[in-house]
Every structure is written in structure tokens, then in C-alpha cells.
Design a binder for these strands. Sequence first.
DNA 1: TCTGGGGTCCTAGGACCC
DNA 2: TCTGGGGTCCTAGGACCC
Length: 423
Amino acid sequence: MTSPIALIDCNSYYCSAERAFDGSLKGVPVIVASNNDGCAIARSDEAKALGIKMGDPIHKIRDKIEAHGVRVLSSNYTLYGDMQRRVLAAIEPFARDIEIYSIDESFLDLAGFEDRDLVAHAQAMRAQVLQWTTIPTCVGIGSTKTLAKLANAAAKKNPIFEGVADLRDESLRNWVLDRFPVGDVWGVGRATAAKIGELGIHTAGQLRDMPIKQARGVGTVVLERLVAELQGVPAAVVETIEPQRKGMAVTRSFGEPARDFDVLMGAIAQYAMRAGEKLRSHGLVAGRLAVFFHTNRFADRPQYSASRTLAIHPMSSDGLELVRLARKGAEHAWRDGYAYTKAGVILEDLIAAELRPRTLFEDEAGTERRDRLMEALDAINGRFGRMTAVPASTGFKRQWRARADMKSPAYTTRIAEVPVVRA
DNA sequence: TCTGGGGTCCTAGGACCC
DNA sequence: TCTGGGGTCCTAGGACCC
């Protein structure tokens, strides 16, 4: 008998986090926009009811926004990250182990809690999160991660569950699975849904009943595992230790297109510096750097997209070295005459800094000097804000900087911006 | 005028080796 | 006339997720 798994996730998380500090957002449609205020990435129930979809470009729903007084906010990741800590603190006593799956979702290993009424247990957990953070949540319970995820979606969609769906009971599970669109199953995307749709599989129940060998043939091992999980056979466990990350990226769309190399390089230099900072904050070094940039693929204009990958040798987290390599790649890939709207720096081949292989003829003293320089840079930028101290190559005008015109304050992480309650 | 950012995993196919 | 087989490693690209 496997122990029950729960998935708890926050409803309209970014919107809910914003509402925690701004009462005027309650009861009205709210959307949080992606970087550059480009598209809607979180919608309150009221906004969903207006037909605003995930990923809708803001400029295409302007009419709706104005007609219904939709409040649009730029994303404030510092706030969402800090609120996540508080949500996790509320959840912690209710599970044996927690796997943080995303900024607003966690899998819980409920081993040891089986003897309790798990629905009541989950309701108590939701109440705790709500009380500590004002953020509403839903909980799904099942014998596998896929079923817990599916239960969670059911709890969200169907009010009869009152926020908690426990699908360990077979007849209830069958009832839900038979009504659950296969395209909404965790791991079934557009391509897979179309492929198995042709075979007459349209519900989660039908996918569960697909012969496992056929699943392997139609999809890959991924679909095979998914069918097993729907049948209640775990193909994955709640992972309690954070796995070593494999890559990291800093990529951005520009507020204004870049037409000359220096402007583009300014953005790329900043991303490379930021990537180095991220590496160092995780105690990692990278062995490979990729730099890319491209034109706006939605625009009816000449298109160009380029990327270059370079070895970082010796492996390093030195921001200035990353900038140097990124420049080399960008120079190589550069083509005149285009309006570039997005660029990025991606680091791969990551390992812990202390495991970094030493190379022959390494300039030990030089490396150490650089390490100290980076330490000082991190200290300055940590204390006075990102981008306080930067290499001159990032430029001074930074006209590529993203728009974020409707960003909420750093309510919880910046003393000058904490909310003030007046008597 | 204006369409996000950051991840993971899997597979196929080429290079290379013995 | 007759021209292997099997393994590893790496990369690019697809699919999917939040």
C-alpha cells in the first residue's frame, strides 16, 4: 500500500498575492502581466469569467480591460517569492515531506497521516494558509502524483469538492476520470492530446484504460509512465531533496527593439552578469554558455534568429568572463539591418564550484582576485539593489529595458515599501 | 505600438571508438 | 567475389510544465 500524496496549489497565485496587500483588488477582475507587460499570466476568477485566457496579449484585450475595469499589474516576482515562503511555513506541519514543485504548488507525502480523515486534514491546512497569507488554495489527494494533480484540478473546477478532492475512493475516482478531458491531464499537451484523440481517447478514464504497451508505442516512456500513474501505480515519488540544477537562463524581451550592436550587447552584458550572479548564489560554476537573440516573430518584418554556444574554460562563475564569451558569440552571430526584440544568455553544464576541475597552467592568483571582485560586486548589488554596480558594457541608456509600468511595491522585502496602517 | 521567462526530460542521429 | 557490430557520448529539437 503506497502512502497518499497530496498536491496543494494556490488559486490564481500572483493575483492572490497582490490582493494580500491591496484591498482595492478584492472582488474585481485582476490580471498580472508577464515581463514587459506583454501578456496575461495570472487571472483572478473575475477575469477568467470575462473570457481572458492564460497568455492573452494585453494589447489585444485592451477593450475588455477598459470595458470591465480590469486591474492590470506588472509582475512582482520578489513579492511572489517571499509569499511562497510564508505559504510553505503554513503547510509544513501538515505533511511528512514536501516537494516544492513550482512557486505556487507543492506535493506532500502524507505517510503517517493515513489514519486521519484526510479531507478534514487538508481543510485545516487550507485554513492555516489562508489565515497566515490570505491566499486561497485547493488540495487534491491520490495514490500517485498524477492522480493527486488530477484531483487538485477537479477540486478547483467543481465546487462540490469545496476545495479538497480525495480520489483514493475508487468509485469517486472513476466518476471524476470519466469526465476529465484528457488534454487537462498533467503531462498531456497539445501534440499528445491530438495523437491519442485520433485513437478515440478523450477522457482521463479512457487514457487510464489504454494498454500500457500501446501507450509506449504511441508516445514514449513518458506516456507509458503516465498511464501507469493513472492506474494507481506510482512512476514517480515525492522528491524531498532539491536536485542539482542542469542549466540556468537569463532571457528578456526588450521594451524597445535594438538595431545596433552596442545596444544589443548592452542587454546581453547585463544578462550575462545576472547569470553569473545566479550561478554564484547557488555556489555553481558553468562549463558552457549559449547566447541568442532574435527579431519579433509576430511582426511582419524581416526575421533573423541566431545563437552561439561557447565552452567556458576553465569552468567559471565570473561575470566578466561570461560577458566576454557572450560578446564573442554575439559578434559572431550579428547581422546588420534587423530590429531585435529579445536576447538571452543560457548557462549549461553546471557543477558545484568546489568540484570544479582544475586545469593545467591555471592562473590561481588571477582566479582568486576575480572571485574577490565578484564577491564585492554581489555585496554591493545585494545591499543597494540589482544593477547598482555593473560593467560599462551594459551601457548607460538601457533603452531595451523592459516595461513594468504597473508594478506593485516590494511590500514584504523592502523596508521603505512595507504597507502602513494608519489609525 | 504593444505577444514572458525559466525550467525538465526524452529521442534521434551523428561522431567516434574498438 | 567478399566490406561488421556494438557501444558511448554529444547535440539539436520536440514536448511539456508552471
